[in-house]
């Protein structure tokens, strides 16, 4: 077995990279939510002065990336790799943004799990000594996602209680080999799990088994339990997906009910009419970047497990009656280098 592997799905990074800087940009609705004060930029409207929502999302992606680079006192040419993606077909937002950023680019698609997917790969590349600086960026936009996956915005449809609201937001994280907490110490890569859920208005139920499986694999591989973490943060399971995950893990003998929070549940308040909570690539990126990392710096949390969760569906697969596979990738974020 490779030197640094722990069990079946987890690796312990030999040289844990740090999150050197970060930037978050969100839409108006997210800015009005309970975490509004933590975000770096809150947009006035959904278009941000652009002609289309797609252009607006692309600009959010670029600006977040540039902001994270500038904050670390670097230039785009200093960055070795850009890892990133988004929710749109052919990850077009990430591709177009990479066109103008001019950084060697790996485009990734893991639906809403893209954040931890890109952080996992970025951290491995740095730890292995192939890069000094890696930028990880993901974004989503309510209007672009809605028109691709669901109905036109002005169509008078009712959303069921399990429906989630795609977060308008972009988050960028600059990873480096510096000695500056927080560090990424472990990576658990998820398997694609499908329990046959077909309801596209219930992504939480489709993703919960994947989240539970990855958390379980992480605990088993590292031979640690929930107590090793101050917080377990999932990306966008929503209110019901979170409950399902807790129940599924209880069956496996792990009680995480007191420390599992979900970014999709945190970003909006109850009166914002988002039903089960937020979703999208941007959801875990902006909540983790703006809120969780801030709390870690303030010393509230010392060690957390971050899982972005993705529902790997396409409009074609849904229409053909295919069930919705889920995936979740976990990274351990630690204020100590371990």
């Amino acid at each position: 077995m490779a030197k640094h592997r722990l069990g079946g799905q987890t690796i312990k990074l030999e040289n844990p990279p740090c999150i050197l800087s970060r930037a978050t940009i969100v839409g108006k609705k997210e800015g009005q939510g309970p975490l509004g004060e933590y975000f770096d930029v809150v947009l006035e409207d959904s278009l941000w002065g652009e002609k289309t929502w797609e252009k607006a999302e692309c600009r959010m992606y670029q600006e977040a990336a540039k902001m994270a680079i500038t904050r670390a006192g670097k230039q785009p040419q200093d960055i070795n790799y850009l890892f990133g993606g988004d929710l749109l077909n052919q990850i077009i937002t990430a591709n177009l943004a990479a066109r103008s950023l001019g950084i060697p680019f790996f485009g990734l698609y893991g639906a809403c799990s893209t954040l931890t997917e890109s952080m996992s790969l970025g951290a491995m590349v740095i730890s292995a000594g192939y890069a000094d600086l890696v930028l990880c960026v993901t974004s989503s936009h309510f209007c672009t996602a809605e028109r691709q996956y669901r109905f036109p915005l002005e169509m008078g449809t009712q959303r069921p209680p399990t429906a989630q609201w795609t977060v308008t937001g972009a988050g960028a994280f600059l990873l480096s080999n510096h000695m500056k907490p927080p560090y990424i110490t472990h990576i658990t890569t998820g398997k694609v799990i499908d329990y046959g859920i077909t309801d596209t208005n219930n992504m939480g139920a489709a993703m919960a088994p994947a989240a539970a499986a990855t958390i379980k694999a992480h605990f088993e591989d590292t031979q640690q339990g929930p107590d090793a973490y101050d917080l377990i943060v999932t990306g966008d399971l929503g209110r019901f997906g979170r409950e399902l995950t807790i129940d599924l893990l209880k069956k496996e003998g792990y009680d995480i009910s007191d420390r599992l929070i979900d970014c999709g549940c945190e970003i909006y308040s109850k009166d914002q009419d988002v039903h089960a909570g937020g979703s999208g690539c941007g959801c875990s990126a902006v909540v983790f970047g703006a809120y969780i990392l801030r709390k870690m710096e303030e010393g509230v949390y010392k060690r957390i497990l971050l899982l972005s969760t993705g529902a790997l569906l396409s409009t074609t697969s849904c229409q053909q009656g295919e069930s919705i596979p889920g995936i979740a990738h976990a990274v351990t974020i630690d204020m100590d280098r371990g």
């Binding site: 108006k28 409207d45 959904s46 309510f142 209007c143 809605e146 036109p152 915005l153 002005e154």
Partner: peptide, 11 residues
């Protein structure tokens, strides 16, 4: 006509 004259808005 409606599609040409108006633009959709964020929900």
């Amino acid at each position: 006509l409606a599609a040409v004259l108006f633009n959709p808005r964020m929900k």
